[in-house]
Amino acid sequence: MLQVPKKIFVILTLLLCIALGILYWLQQSSHQHNQITLYGNVDIRQVEAAFYDTGRIVTILVQEGDNVKKGQLLAQLDPVRFQELIKQQQALLAAQQQLLNRLRNGSRPEEIEQARSEVSSAKANLINTQITYERQLELVKKQYVPKQNVDNALAAFITAKANLNHAQQTLKLALEGPRKEDIKAAEQQLKSYQSALALSQQELLDANLYAPESGVIENRILEPGDMVTPQAAVLTLALDNPIWVRAYIPETSLGLIHPGMPAEINSDSYPNQPFAGWIGYISPTAEFTPKNVETPELRTQLVYQVRIFACNTNHRLRLGMPITLHINLTDKLNSHLGNDPCSK
């Protein structure tokens, strides 16, 4: 009689285990239908930082692995050549400014008085030469002097008239001042020197190399003492915030995801420490599965590249790191991302 309840208990236990197993299987099946799992690798963007001008590097202020902020000074060229060019442009600008001031101010009062005095002197000389000519003309009629004296007096009289006319025109120019065209030309030349000075000052600023974005110094390509050109990179800057994971989704699952959907990023380097991400890009072009991603059987399937972005403020996710992605299809879109979600 005691064995019957024991058999019943064993049977009930087995039935309970079977029921729990079925329930677990149903839950897992439902979970799999609500979630997509993808596999990929961390990728980042890189910037080859270079100077705007040619010169010799005098200092590099960062080392490989240093975290830098946008606008931080990274390296410098020898500034002597740029500084001397600025001094030259400043001197040319100052000289042209004085020339323009002189043209705008016109003739000085002393110059006008000098011109008037020359006119008076020319008038007096004209009167004297006229009297001399008339006197010599009377004397030659009486044959007291040779005719050559008359010719000399006439030449002196004509010269005096020309000198008076020249002096009068000089006085007129002094009173009117410089031509408007000359002033305009001087003003344009001044603007040219101002632009040249501004360009020289900018070239001096460009002798400093600043970080174009926040990131990590990945490589020091050149060292102090090296000659550089604008085409030669000095430093390689890794832009690792945000990072993105390159993954591939089958064509059959493409309609289940949308840009902005949240995703969970998992790395073997940080077990049980998922990173929050979001779908930032879905390729418009289908391709065959890359050979380094799937097995030979799956390489013939059409897939689409997706990029899952994530903020990396602690710099824990690194280039090439293998990643497992989980996309919960029941999650709504992230409407709060904005243009730069990692700056918050």
Rank of each mutant, 00 (worst) to 15 (best):
S269M: 13
P224H: 12
S253Q: 15
Q202I: 02
A247W: 04
T229G: 11
I257K: 06
A263Y: 01
A238D: 08
N241L: 01
Q201S: 08
N241W: 03
I257W: 09
R220T: 10
I257R: 08
P262T: 05
E223N: 14
L235F: 06
I257A: 11
G215W: 08
P242A: 07
P212F: 08
N241R: 04
A247D: 07
H258Y: 13
A247I: 05
G225P: 09
I265Q: 01
S200H: 05
G215S: 14
Q201A: 11
P262E: 04
L256P: 01
T236A: 15
L222A: 11
D206W: 09
M261D: 05
L197V: 06
L197D: 03
W244Y: 15
A207V: 02
D240G: 00
S214K: 06
D240M: 11
P242H: 05
Y270K: 07
A207R: 00
A263F: 07
L197T: 06
D226P: 02
L237S: 01
R220I: 06
Q202T: 05
L204M: 13
V234Q: 02
A196R: 00
A263P: 06
S267L: 07
M261I: 08
M261K: 02
S192M: 12
L235E: 04
L256D: 15
L235K: 00
T252D: 14
D240S: 12
L235G: 03
V228A: 04
P230R: 07
E218G: 15
Q202W: 04
R220D: 06
G255Q: 10
L237Q: 03
S214V: 09
V228M: 01
S200A: 15
G215F: 12
I221E: 02
S267E: 12
Y270V: 11
P262S: 04
A247M: 10
G225W: 12
L190E: 07
S253A: 15
D206I: 01
D206F: 05
S253F: 05
Y248C: 11
N241G: 00
L205R: 09
K191A: 12
Y248D: 05
E223F: 11
R246Y: 09
A233I: 06
I265G: 00
I265M: 09
L237P: 01
I221H: 04
P212C: 10
L254A: 10
R246F: 03
S192K: 10
L256H: 11
A198N: 14
S192I: 08
A232R: 09
L204K: 03
E223P: 03
S267N: 11
L239M: 14
L254S: 10
A196D: 14
S253C: 07
L222M: 11
I265R: 02
L256C: 05
M227E: 14
S267F: 08
Q201D: 05
N208M: 03
S195V: 07
